[in-house]
Amino acid sequence: MITIVFSLFLLTMLVIVAVGILRTDNLFTAVMLSGIFSLIMAANFFILDAADVALTEAVIGAGISTVLFLGALALTAEYDRSPPVGTWVPLLTSSALGGVIIFATLQAPRLGDPNAVVHKHVAPWYLDRTPELIDVPNVVTAVLASFRGYDTLGEVFVVFIACIGVMSLLGRVRPRRDSIEEDEFDKRTDNLRHHLIPRVVGKMLVPFIVLFGLYVQFHGDFGPGGGFQAGALIAAGVILYSLLEGGPRGRELVPEWFSSLLVALGAFTYTCVGVVSMAMGGRFLDYSVLSHDPVHGQHMGILIIEAGVGMTVTGVMITIFHAFSRRGIR
């Protein structure tokens, strides 16, 4: 009951904020409101007991995407220009789509209905067999990393390809020097070094954020978390350092070749686990053969592929951030 009341409350706020994002033509306002949007969504996921998703949404939605949006905004104009097409066709299309979705929800099962299809299909099997086959307390990790290892491998490659796409757009261009000298610009704008309080407090936080990222990485079998969340947290630590000390120093801490290497290495590690398990007589991504004891093999496989996921996500976030901060110098 409490869940439903809180969810309704938060979802109503979500709709209001979404309309606010659409209505404003000031892009900075839109970025700020989308930060609020992510936080509401994360709180809602949390109320629905989806702790892993809530953690991802909080770190990526409220933290890193705000930074990246502002990086993009620094490269463009501040106000939205109205699109060249008329408003009728988009309005009609989105109303039709919305109508179809609302019509579909009429058939959807009630929230928390034990007879809903999702609770009858494979979910009971996962819940029953996880203690016996994989023996990790967090079933989400077991499903994500082992039962559905193929899907997660696919996700890692999607992230990998997305990174290649973003990099081919942003590129490693040489900064233009027409408006202001690069060094001069750096000294004055690219960092918060002369703001004493943010600098001191921020620098103290960096090691704790990275430590928390490592905890989330290796504790993912037991509590909420795993490679995706950990990767985003560790990248957030590096981004915080780069914001405080400026892009060039951030690129000294984690060079661009290293972050690009991490992106590829993570996906490579994940695939290697699959190939090794084939070589050892199992099927692709069947971790049971990795050790003499099948359950132990599963633990090992999950640990390694989570590390691969973490490396790729960390690398992607840092690479994209560096690309933006380099482009910011104009």
Binding site: G35, G63, I64, T66, V67, L70, P198, F212, I239, L243
Partner: peptide, 10 residues
């Protein structure tokens, strides 16, 4: 921990 970063970016 994460909240802080967005504000610094602003």
């Amino acid at each position: 921990l994460i909240n802080f970063i967005g504000v610094l970016a602003v």
